[in-house]
């Protein structure tokens, strides 16, 4: 089933999205760092913090919403949905394959971010020091942290059969996510809201966002465990939902 989903990604519109958003983050981060070089003296850590600031708050989560909507769009066009529902596969296999396919494009987006950050830091800003391994680790952690949102957006895109509606819901979640990570009162929400989990994961070790966790087991494990648990719950809900949709 996953192989079928991977074939669908060939020549798909997900790739321009997965390329553009992280490059936008790297570009804005580079410009911001270059324009404030006198204040931002932290080298790679400060530069990466600039890159992931808006990316973590908005671009990454919004990108996941767009990628999931684009991945599902192909099913809702024409009668491909009928094709999917007349296979003899279990609903769980269908959901997991779609989630995995979306996760592949999310991973690509992260790879572009990390490589773009390294290239820009080394060749545009000419930052000193060796290649910071933290960038790669945070990039990988963010992929796992993104799973709940990947599942939620995938389910929304499956059920709503619309491109714009699930993306709008995602955007609303981003706004709530920003509020939850920047306000003390809403902070508990940042531990369960998928968009906020993304923000917290990408800002591990960051100097740009107050209250960012550190890149230590104490900072990383709660994010990873919450993400995996939440993703599992969402998949279970999705399987129940598709059973109802299937024999509507």
């Amino acid at each position: 089933m996953l192989r079928a989903e991977l074939i669908k990604l060939r020549r798909s519109a997900v790739w321009p999205i997965a390329l553009a958003l992280p490059l936008l983050a790297v570009t804005t981060g580079t410009i911001n760092y270059a324009n404030n070089a006198d204040q931002l003296t932290g080298g790679w850590v400060a530069f990466n913090s600039q890159v992931v600031l808006f990316y973590g708050l908005l671009f990454f989560s919004l990108g996941i919403g767009l990628l999931a909507a684009t991945t599902w769009r192909a099913e809702h066009r024409g009668t491909n949905w009928n094709l999917l529902l007349t296979t003899s596969r279990r609903p769980a296999a269908l959901i997991l394959a779609k989630v995995a396919a979306t996760a592949v494009s999310v991973a690509f987006m992260q790879a572009v971010l990390v490589v773009g950050t390294l290239v820009s830091g080394a060749f545009v800003l000419r930052l000193d020091g060796g290649v910071p391994w933290q960038l790669v680790v945070v990039g990988a952690i963010a992929i796992i942290a993104a799973l709940p949102l990947v599942v939620v957006q995938s389910l929304l895109s499956m059920l709503l059969k619309s491109f714009a509606a699930p993306v709008a819901v995602c955007l609303a979640g981003c706004v709530l996510g920003v509020a939850s990570v920047t306000s003390v009162g809403l902070r508990p929400l940042s531990h369960v809201l998928p968009q906020a989990i993304n923000t917290r994961a990408l800002n591990l070790g960051s100097t740009a966002l107050a209250g960012s966790g550190s890149l230590t087991p104490d900072g990383v494990l709660p994010i990873l465990l919450t993400a995996l648990g939440l993703a599992a719950v969402c998949v279970a809900l999705g399987v129940a939902a598709i059973r109802r949709v299937k024999l509507r």
Binding site: A4, I7, K8, R10, A74, G78, T86, S88, R89
Partner: peptide, 30 residues
């Protein structure tokens, strides 16, 4: 459903893929 082939309302197919790639999707799904 393993014994039933179907085409309802209009032919399915992913326009951005080739005919063979579309068939490969069916192959891997089944």
């Amino acid at each position: 459903l393993r014994s039933i082939g179907s085409m309802i309302e209009a032919p399915p197919g992913y326009g951005h893929l080739t005919g063979l790639e579309n068939m490969r999707i069916v192959q891997h799904m089944l």
